[in-house]
Simulated assay, not measured.
Amino acid sequence: MNIKSIYPCCILALLIVSSCAPKRDLVYFSNMASSVTENNTQAQETRIHKNDVVNITMTSSNPESNLLFISNKNAASGTSLYKDGYRVNKSGYVNLPLIGDFKIEGLGVDEAQTKIAAELDKYVKNPVVDIQIVNFKITVIGEVNKPSTFIITDEKVNLLEALGMAGDMTVYGRRENVLVIRNEGNHKTMKRLNLNKQEAMNSPYFYLTQNDIVYVEPDRSKAVEYSQNTRLMPLVIASISAVAVLAAVLLKR
């Protein structure tokens, strides 16, 4: 090969290598129309599972009964009371003041509140029950800036909010292939969502439930970038370019 042609060939090689990276859509819901789009998907009702820790507050219109709730709750600290709430045992029960063992596993939070209040109505007037799941959590891992497990206080979070808590995806995160892993009864289900498409908001997996795991898969370009051969490629190309420049200078003399 003519020495004069080495330098242009190196430039061409650099352009080819730089153009090999696949084009990727980094915009969420990029197919969404400019007009306002309605999303009718609702968050699924939060249900209570075994080993959940629930904070159950019971009150009534009678101050004496309220004191009884407090004293009985303190007395239950040696049984099912756990930190800031009651841990649902392996049979799905919690031990409540006045009522005793009461099964709440599988019930929605609102449904559990209604049933406990109906049972309390046998003992006090106008009972009011409030339940919060203390250990409602989700986990976001993979190609995000701050992978972690997050405690959700209001028991309602969607996929975008979860990614926001994790510092959003890195540039390597595959927005078109986000995996949600969910516990449903005694088995796990998995669903992949394409966050480049607005249709993802209609999926029942867009709103997360307790203990969901969100995995953001890395793009193949990251694997290429971090492979041993690819890390050596810039050094090889730089060396060839240096030789080509030196040859060009020598030819001008």
Rank of each mutant, 00 (worst) to 15 (best):
A200D: 10
L67Y: 09
I131C: 12
V36E: 14
Y207Q: 01
N40I: 01
V128L: 12
G185R: 02
N202R: 07
F206W: 02
K146W: 13
P127N: 04
L120K: 02
L107N: 06
T149H: 03
V36N: 14
A21F: 01
I181R: 06
S30V: 08
V144S: 06
P22S: 13
V214Y: 00
P127G: 07
D212V: 00
A162W: 01
T153C: 07
V53T: 09
T230W: 15
S35A: 09
T46I: 06
S61C: 07
L250T: 11
V27L: 09
T139P: 08
V94H: 00
R47C: 08
I152M: 08
Y86S: 12
V109M: 07
S80F: 00
A117S: 10
D110K: 03
K23S: 14
L68R: 11
M190K: 15
V236W: 03
R24M: 09
E217V: 06
A75H: 00
T149L: 06
D52A: 10
M190L: 08
T170S: 09
E217G: 04
S60C: 02
L96V: 07
R174A: 01
R220K: 14
N74V: 10
V17F: 03
I104H: 06
Y215S: 13
P147D: 09
I181A: 08
M169A: 10
S227D: 12
N89C: 05
K191R: 15
Q42A: 13
S61D: 12
T57A: 12
P22G: 08
